[in-house]
Design a protein around this nucleic acid. Structure first.
Lengths: 109, 109
DNA sequence: AGCGTATATCGTAAAAGTACGATAGACAAA
DNA sequence: TTTGTCTATCGTACTTTTACGATATACGCT
């Protein structure tokens, strides 16, 4: 995207935006869902599952890893990826805070 | 971004990604938070509050409107924006479904 | 050592996002 | 009607994202 003026916003707003960016691509959502039901997976699984090129999957995995939602452990030739439960809950709370901040009662427009 | 191969993914994955994209910018998060605490606001309020150009705010408001999270009603010269409670809950559930799908017990890596 | 498998990284083309000035349209007040 | 105010849209410059082929690296096996 273009330049984002992060200095205009609070740390929490920037953090939420950064995490949301990771959810903002169906491939990464699909990877997370696959990880949830399979518990763990390797890059190759996802190439089969999603039909994207290996390089593309690797790139998505890196972005998921960068925000801490997943972590990988080397298992011989391959790398085993899985969800980080601590970070997962952390991120869940981040969204929860925003969503629950809105009182459904306040009818307006 | 580049081209996203939406046809490779489920409708729900694409929908979640599309909504997440809206949260993926701190300005839009800030707008939503402002709307939550103020109940409603106009474009001009946000220009003051956020320090972005009027055209930029308008652009962000449009994206929020396009996914249905907010709606605006014309009020004389200005437009009153507020959160759509129905859509808000809908989106909340979309994220909730993903987050709650992961059973915290499954230790792995 | 040599081969096959698995992954990460580099480089790149195409597309989308961000921000803003300039402009246009709509309304209220003078 | 003219002026001032508020908002949306257009056009544009710049940045980031997406996807993939090509390549490099690392490991296990023979």
């Amino acid at each position: 995207m273009g330049v984002t003026k992060t200095d205009l916003f609070t740390e929490k707003q920037n953090e939420l935006a950064k995490v949301a960016k990771v959810f903002a691509h169906p491939a990464r959502v699909a990877i997370l869902e696959y990880l949830i039901q399979a518990n763990s997976c390797i890059n190759g699984d996802l190439v089969q599952e999603l039909g994207l090129a290996q390089a593309t999957i690797s790139q998505h995995l890196r972005e998921l890893k960068e925000v801490g939602l997943i972590k990988g452990s080397i298992e011989g030739v391959s790398v085993n990826y899985c969800i980080d439960p601590i970070r997962w809950t952390e991120v869940q709370n981040l969204f929860q805070d925003l969503f629950s901040g809105f009182p459904k009662i306040s009818g307006c427009c």
